[in-house]
Design a protein around this nucleic acid. Structure first.
Lengths: 262, 262
DNA sequence: CGAAACATTGAACCTATTCAACGCCCGTGG
DNA sequence: CCACGGGCGTTGAATAGGTTCAATGTTTCG
């Protein structure tokens, strides 16, 4: 992966300043390489990806900007080159739900462009982001020509269905503490960063965010995190969580008896 | 649709005997016609469907039998010719969740055979059922040859993702009464039967079932249904629900102020 | 008729929500 | 530099909404 990296003024990131709106790391994107790093396209030959790369539009977003808004007509598939994005869904009742975080090498918007419908979610940039917009028409056309790509999409969707079914199950059967623990372990595996103190969840993560992921309130999340901090399972701060004892959190997620010791 | 229908001893079905285990209506299945009635295959030419029909295995199940069990290796895609089936998922914690009902002209097992993995659900026959088993290998092979079929699968999966996301949202944001109302309206549109008294949910539907669909307990469901019956919104019986005032139930589902009148 | 499966209801209990008050941190502007 | 305000986080107290358990009733079927 030979991206030419042009750094902004401040390269170093300390763990305490997690939401560095001012740090803008602009990378010269190699479209083909980026596309190939997305699992959907990884099986394709470069020649096959060429029309996609040519049709791709590069775009940048600042922290806080919305890449897409729910109910807008879907035009593009988004591939993330750098930065963190969160996908949220607003219900008719006005409650927001945080579906997932998307980071570099991942994509979103696939469902909407496949149905040629409206985006079912909003996407908000949490940091400075570079993304590629792939026109839905190009993707749809390519799928009808390259069965391999269609199979990739199917695998992607099938995986999503599975994970949603699991989440549904959890939400209906488990208590809040368990669900929060699960959300944390999921986040750890997705955007976790090993440090000496433990696993740092490497996105700005407020109590409110965790509440929206687990279907509870920010108050309850706050209480739960406080409890865990007293038990030295985690180290929580402003929009920041470090998991000090992963096995302890997993134990809570799986509803096992609390593990003895360390 | 020219199926030759060979009736069992008792053709008539009264609305009070809803779970007629003894009534076995055996139909001579025309595989091609049945397959074409499934939305996935409806766009295909009969010639294209021939290999599928030839590889299909017809099988019958009695009420209470399991067509598939969770975690078994997935071999077949199931197409339902007649009868009602319910899909359930068991969590590691031992809680059961009722995902959906499947009736004639619908299919299930698609996700599992696409990933060549294990079934993520169990399927239980609620009535006598006739189904076609389509080997996963045949489907997978066909998909790589007929892009149209792959697109159909994709549409099917995309729809499923959408509906699961909506359900997740509901489960996390709405109160039990709302969720039960939603489940009922969903059931009404799927397996509802217009009668003089109202819309009959045309499957055996216990309080336990409703509880497993909405993530609550059978006690709470019982209380809610009792309440609605007192308000003359529904007519509830043993494994039987008739919606007498659909608009009233919808109002509860949508959290509107209770409608005056009627 | 009796057993089994399904349904109802009351009472105690508990989890999580709600509301309100307050603390803390950070950036901004006087 | 300090004061102020805004956003985020914490915590207590009251409360609501569901759960749990147990007792009892009802329907169906063999």
């Amino acid at each position: 992966m030979h991206w030419i990296i042009r750094l902004g003024k401040s390269e170093q990131r300390s763990y305490t300043s997690l939401n560095p709106k001012e740090i803008i790391v602009k990378q010269q994107l190699d479209y083909l390489d980026l596309l190939k790093s997305v699992s959907l396209f990884s099986d394709l030959k470069k020649a096959e990806l060429l029309p996609v790369a040519q049709a791709a539009i590069e775009k940048c977003f600042h922290a806080g900007e919305f890449l897409i808004r729910q109910d807008e007509p879907a035009e593009y598939l988004f591939v993330v080159g750098s930065g963190n994005i969160k996908l949220t869904q607003l219900s008719s009742g006005g409650d927001q739900f945080l579906l997932c975080y998307v980071t570099s090498g991942e994509m979103f918007g696939s469902i909407a462009i496949l149905q040629n419908a409206a985006y079912p979610v909003s996407a908000e940039a949490l940091t400075y982001c570079q993304v590629l917009l792939l026109p839905g028409s190009v993707i749809r056309h390519l799928m009808s020509e390259i069965p391999q790509l269609a199979m990739g999409v199917i695998r992607h969707l099938a995986g999503r269905v599975q994970s949603l079914q699991r989440q549904l199950q959890e939400l209906s059967a488990e208590r809040v503490e368990q669900r929060v623990a699960r959300a944390l372990t999921r986040l750890a595996s997705q955007v976790g960063l090993r440090t000496e103190q433990g696993i740092l969840i490497n996105v700005a993560l407020s109590r409110q965010d965790l509440a929206e992921m687990t279907g509870t309130t920010l108050y309850t999340v706050s209480r739960i995190l406080s409890g865990w901090e007293k038990r030295a399972l985690i180290d929580a701060g402003r929009e920041r969580v470090v998991i000090k004892k992963p096995h302890g959190i997993v134990a809570i997620a799986e509803d096992l008896p609390a593990p003895r010791s360390k």
